[in-house]
Design a binder for these strands. Structure first.
Length: 153
DNA sequence: GCCAACGTTGGC
DNA sequence: GCCAACGTTGGC
């Protein structure tokens, strides 16, 4: 049973891979996902799965490193907090619509793999990242992962 | 700051 | 169930 591979987007101004690294072994709850498709992917994640960290909304959009899933999906209680940015009026305590996974920093890429590079590499042409550019959680195939890992050396 | 892509909402 | 209006994401 091999680990699945995922890509998680984050805006480095909000929470960067360096912030994740600072959390150490305890990791970080990947909260605030408010898109059903992204949530459904979160719910498929298993302990030990690989999560590639992608920086978006910045000068150089790129995959910058790797993390690991250390806690499978659980309800995102922020959805119940009316003063939270992530409040969801359609969630209730017995039916929280949104989920979180916890991820732990693994390592930085020696060379970040930029979006530009990904777009130019025909081996990566079918990446979900390119197909659905607005999705903040997406799957990565093993082949894609191998190519990305090589580019990141 | 602009705009394309696209998910969500709500009226009908 | 359709679809227009609206909001958000994210690259440039």
């Amino acid at each position: 049973m091999t680990a699945s591979i995922w890509l998680l987007k984050t805006e480095p101004d909000e929470f960067s891979i360096d912030d994740l690294a600072q959390r150490g072994v305890q990791g970080e709850p990947w909260s605030g996902i408010r898109n059903f498709q992204a949530r459904n992917y979160l719910r498929q994640m298993k302990m030990g799965d690989i999560a590639l960290i992608y920086h978006s909304g910045c000068a150089q959009p790129a995959i910058v490193g790797q993390a690991m899933v250390i806690h499978e999906a659980y309800p995102d209680a922020e959805a119940l907090n009316p003063s939270s940015d992530y409040f969801d009026a359609k969630s209730s305590s017995d039916n929280i619509r949104w989920s979180i996974v916890d991820v732990r920093f693994s390592h930085l890429f020696n060379t970040p793999v930029t979006l530009k590079q990904i777009k130019l590499d025909e081996r990566l042409a079918s990446m979900a990242l390119l197909k659905q550019s607005r999705l903040s959680v997406s799957p990565v195939t093993e082949k894609e992962y191998r190519v990305l890992s090589t580019l990141a050396e």
